[in-house]
């Protein structure tokens, strides 16, 4: 009898506690599908894909609309205008050039144009064409795809 009481005493709360635990379904396996809008092929290793977050993906869109013509070697229309220009604009993935430049300097160059920052006037000012958010997004995209990779810690991030 005593043992049965003890068992009863143990069973009731344990049922109550167990029932409160949730059944956790097994995590779904990661989908191998790749997405061209949300990833970017690494410029040095085509096998490697760089995932883009929301802001970087928006930057990719703006880049492919406005910047790709002079800062990439192939464009949606085919040939690029880059080789046509003196001085030759740096490629958007050119980490060696861009990684050492601060976010502020990069943003100001895009916003105010090359001549305002003491660079070539062939870089036009985009401040009245793109919104500040779009310019920030383009920068985030360029940072994400830079080769060698850009390390934010190398310079204090500016807000």
């Amino acid at each position: 009898m005593k043992r049965r009481d003890l068992i009863l005493f143990l069973i009731i709360p344990s049922i109550a506690i167990l029932s409160s635990c949730q059944h956790k379904p097994a995590a779904a396996p990661a989908n191998p599908l790749l997405n061209a809008y949300d990833v970017e092929q690494s410029s040095t290793d085509p096998q490697r894909l760089i995932p883009l977050n929301y802001q970087q993906a928006q930057g990719k869109r703006v880049f492919n609309n406005n910047c790709v013509w002079c800062h990439a070697d192939s464009t949606p229309a085919g040939p690029s205008n880059r080789s046509n220009l003196t001085p030759t604009p740096p490629l958007f993935t050119d980490g060696e050039t861009f990684n050492s430049l601060s976010d502020d300097l990069m943003r100001n160059t895009i916003t105010l144009g090359g001549s305002a920052m003491g660079k070539s006037a062939i870089m036009p000012p985009w401040g009245q064409t793109l919104t500040p958010d779009e310019i920030r997004a383009v920068l985030a995209y360029a940072r994400a795809v830079a080769q060698p990779p850009y390390k934010a810690s190398a310079r204090p991030a500016s807000q």
Partner: peptide, 15 residues
Amino acid sequence: QCNACHTIGSAGGYV
């Protein structure tokens, strides 16, 4: 530097 994007004659850009 409009010629970065526009062509006049045989010189200039393609954008």
